[in-house]
């Protein structure tokens, strides 16, 4: 992984990726390279295949054709936990936390593997100062320190999304993937979460799927536009926004989806 050309190997490389469900092809040949330390947003209207692409990258679904490489290593056939150990961490579109545990325990669980505890049954988690302090540091970053001891399920929606991001980054993965982190949020909540994402993904590779271009405009270094399973444009946010093809396709499809 840490070989000589580590600097030139993209963090994530997608090559000819295709996915069909039955006769319907949802992802129709995607090539994408995401460099290290880059914040890359994939945007597109509803039904464009954003979440499918996301699940293909994280090997939640097997791809019909093509491949995904993380730091130059093929991810085909790997289990989620193996991919996670290679340095990729993801969030879920539907909030996916451990709702019966406290907020603190949620974060502490996400630190365990990266701190080398593995399947240990001879350590007590409460005895580890690194775990407690590490978890509290994450909680401070995501501004949930005052919710520390509440069951995670009792948090507000926005707080749960923040916790989800906290869990995703806690393990120290260098590639962070967020699936519509601002879905279902008000404007002020969205601004808050975007700011939070900017803060916690400092010096990391971020891949983020988003419905609304406005949300990612100030955040992403690059934007790819996905329409009907194909990427129709990739580039700097200004270029993409000015691209007439994007405007047409994106607006057209968005209007269509509304009817």
């Amino acid at each position: 992984m840490k070989d000589m050309n580590a600097a030139t190997t993209p963090a994530l490389h997608i090559d000819g990726l295709r996915k069909s469900f039955g006769k319907t092809e949802i992802i129709r040949g995607i090539d994408l390279s995401i460099g290290r330390g880059e914040r890359h947003a994939v945007i597109g209207p509803n039904g464009a295949g954003k979440s499918t692409l996301f699940n293909l990258i994280t090997a939640r679904f097997p791809a019909t054709a093509g491949k995904v490489e993380l730091h130059g290593q093929d991810l085909a056939g790997l289990a989620p936990y193996q991919i996670n150990r290679m340095g990729l961490s993801r969030s879920f579109q539907i909030t996916n936390i451990f709702s019966n545990m406290t907020v603190f325990e949620n974060v502490r669980c996400s630190l365990l593997w990266s701190q080398g505890y593995k399947y240990s049954f001879w350590n007590l988690v409460s005895r580890s100062r690194e775990l407690t302090e590490g978890a509290d540091a994450i909680l401070e970053q995501i501004n949930l320190l005052n919710r520390r001891n509440l069951p995670a399920g009792t948090l507000s929606y926005a707080e749960q999304r923040a916790l989800e991001i906290g869990i995703t980054i806690a393990g120290g993965a260098d590639v962070i993937m967020l699936d519509e982190p601002t879905a279902g949020m008000s404007h002020s909540e969205t601004d808050y979460i975007v700011e939070l994402i900017r803060k916690v993904t400092e010096n990391k590779t971020l891949v983020m799927v988003e419905h609304d271009m406005g949300v990612v405009f100030g955040l992403a270094d690059y934007i790819s536009v996905l329409v009907y399973g194909e990427i129709i444009a990739t580039g700097r946010p200004e270029e993409v926004r000015g691209n007439p093809k994007v405007q047409e396709a994106y607006l057209g499809a968005a209007l269509e989806a509304e009817h």
């Binding site: 996670n84 879920f92 451990f98 593995k118 049954f121 988690v125």
Partner: peptide, 27 residues
């Protein structure tokens, strides 16, 4: 004490949400 070890805590995590637990590095 077992329930307070890393593997004991992760047992709770897997109970609540196995998929999430896998994306934290645990099988």
């Amino acid at each position: 004490l077992f329930s307070r070890t890393p593997v004991g805590r992760m047992a709770n995590a897997v109970r609540d949400n196995p998929e999430r637990a896998e994306f934290l590095g645990y099988s």
